[in-house]
């Protein structure tokens, strides 16, 4: 067993875990934060995307022990109380989801995209940057639209720096 301390969505947590514990298992099974999904478990689909020290990573391919001490943001950490994060609101407004399974990963990637590329995102950039996120339902069209408007809204709300 190894002791792992993480700051998750602003709360510090320490758990003794098997060294094999993946970050996504730590979040889902030890912390009951089940918004982060496991689609493929093979680093392909991006459903498990969370922010580690501010950068998007696939939590199915990270050992919890290897990120000991890190600051983690999951989909549960984006909204402010009852107020959805502008990117979440944009996905709802523009029907950026169908079954919703890929959505937490899409939104975490989208917020990271804004951090790196700014709030004025064209469709080509958005599609390229979604390389690591797979959706089996929507055909991506409304996801791209949602990210475009979500990014714009983040600019207006001044949340781009997160």
């Amino acid at each position: 067993m190894a002791s792992v301390t993480l700051s998750v969505n602003g709360k510090s947590v320490t758990r003794d875990v098997d060294a094999r514990t993946l970050l996504v298992e730590f979040l889902r099974e030890h912390m009951r934060l089940t918004g982060t999904h496991v689609g493929c478990d093979t680093t392909q689909c991006g459903c498990c995307t969370v922010h580690v020290n501010g950068e998007a990573m696939k939590s199915c391919t990270l050992l919890a022990v290897a990120v000991d001490g890190a600051t983690i943001t999951t989909i549960e950490g984006l909204a402010k109380g009852q107020d959805l994060h502008p990117m979440q609101a944009a996905f709802r407004e523009h029907h950026g989801l169908q079954c919703g399974f890929c959505t937490p990963g899409m939104i975490m990637s989208a917020v990271d995209m804004v951090r790196r590329k700014g709030t004025d995102l064209d469709d080509k950039t958005i599609r390229e940057e979604l390389e690591g996120n797979i959706c089996r339902c929507t055909g991506y069209h409304n996801i791209v639209k949602a990210i475009h408007y979500g990014a714009e809204a983040m600019g207006k709300a001044g949340t781009a720096a997160e």
């Binding site: 991006g46 995307t49 998007a56 990637s109 990271d112 390389e131 690591g132």
Partner: peptide, 9 residues
């Protein structure tokens, strides 16, 4: 290389 998440790690 790969995608943004892979490139971060």
């Amino acid at each position: 290389i790969g995608d943004p998440m892979v490139r971060h790690r």
